[in-house]
Design a protein around this nucleic acid. Structure first.
Lengths: 194, 194
DNA sequence: AAAAAAAGAATGAACGTTCATTTTTTATAT
DNA sequence: ATATAAAAAATGAACGTTCATTCTTTTTTT
């Protein structure tokens, strides 16, 4: 086998082709033959890098999700005050969704539809732990509303996915000012008021 | 043709089968043969009611969307005060998403993925007009933040779709108390503060 | 008895995957 | 450095299957 000897560039071309085609047509409407063509590779070559089509999309999902969360938490430290840490993470996430549209759209597709395997989905979610820990801290300190993490996510992170999809679809353009408005909306929806 | 003579029950069974199978496997992974089987009908019969597979999903989408918006605006009148009207509509929508999970999940799938045709998508969106009118009124009266409708939608309606998907996936159960929390979060994120 | 609706079988195209072969890379010997 | 042999990587064609759709026949309704 010796996977390390195989061309990294070729594997990466396959990953990029998968992202593009799934974004534009959906996973099940994207044939292996087209992924191969877009990556300038033979269909058979795909099976040297991945077990099968399902394994391909699972692996792409987990890797893109890891890239996303790495970016999101890059400048965050658990010692920061809750409000500051949240703003930091939120704006990194907004930044990612704004500037890395292809990757973000792919993640949104996989998160909302029955495309990837449950284990890969779980693995993706596990990368969000720092944010969940921050929220826990915020609730304990009385800075964040003591509601379910699902609600916090629904009202702070998920709206960004929606806006990104609208932007990708060409009906809405996210400007710098929108980011600030959106952050205020997010923070207002979860901050504790006494 | 004489479509009215054909069995309404049979057509409805096809619609229901489509919703169920698309929810569980995605549109492109749902063969006509399985839709036919679940509806207890021959594959050929589908083509008596719909032009083709794409036409089937387009029509199901538009019809389900119409059902949804009919429910959402049932008790609303444009003469209501903005805050009251918004709460009414929002809670009807929450109610629908909570109780009509199958239909809601189907709409979410179609809204987030490249499944349906653009014209059908536009037709679906057009049904939301009363809500957009209400928001316009709210902005004019200084009750609602003067931000893009996309932002208002992202922070009030879209979170419900996320919560519904999580509930459908079995990781989260929406309780009565969550509804109230969620409404407060939604309203806090868009109400004008001076 | 005629017309409409429904059915199952048939069709050609497209799919994911595998196979036999060729090309490229690597390692070795000169 | 160069030639060569072994190994690895990549390929295009082929396989069996499944798909959406159509065709011909049967059943049901009028």
């Amino acid at each position: 086998m010796a996977k390390l000897q195989k061309s990294i560039e070729k594997r990466d071309a396959l990953v990029q082709a998968t992202i593009d085609l799934v974004n534009n047509h959906g996973f099940h409407a994207t044939p292996i033959s087209k992924i191969a063509k877009l990556a300038s590779v033979s269909p058979a070559t795909i099976y040297l890098y991945f077990d099968n089509k399902q394994d391909l999309v699972n692996k792409v999902y987990v890797e893109v999700k890891a890239t996303f969360t790495d970016y999101a938490f890059k400048t965050y430290s658990p010692t920061m005050p809750v409000a500051e840490g949240f703003e930091l993470i939120w704006k990194r996430i907004a930044d990612f969704k704004l500037n890395q549209c292809r990757e973000s759209l792919f993640l949104a597709q996989c998160d909302n539809a029955p495309i990837i395997d449950e284990t890969s989905r779980q693995e993706g979610i596990s990368h969000l732990k720092p944010l969940l820990d921050l929220w826990q801290r915020g609730k304990t300190e009385g800075v964040i509303n003591p509601v379910s993490d699902f609600l916090l996510y629904a009202y702070t992170i998920n709206p960004l996915s929606f806006l990104m999809i609208m932007q990708q679809r060409g009906v809405f353009k996210i400007e710098k000012s929108h980011i600030e408005e959106a952050f205020q909306a997010a923070w207002n929806s979860i901050k504790k008021v006494n």
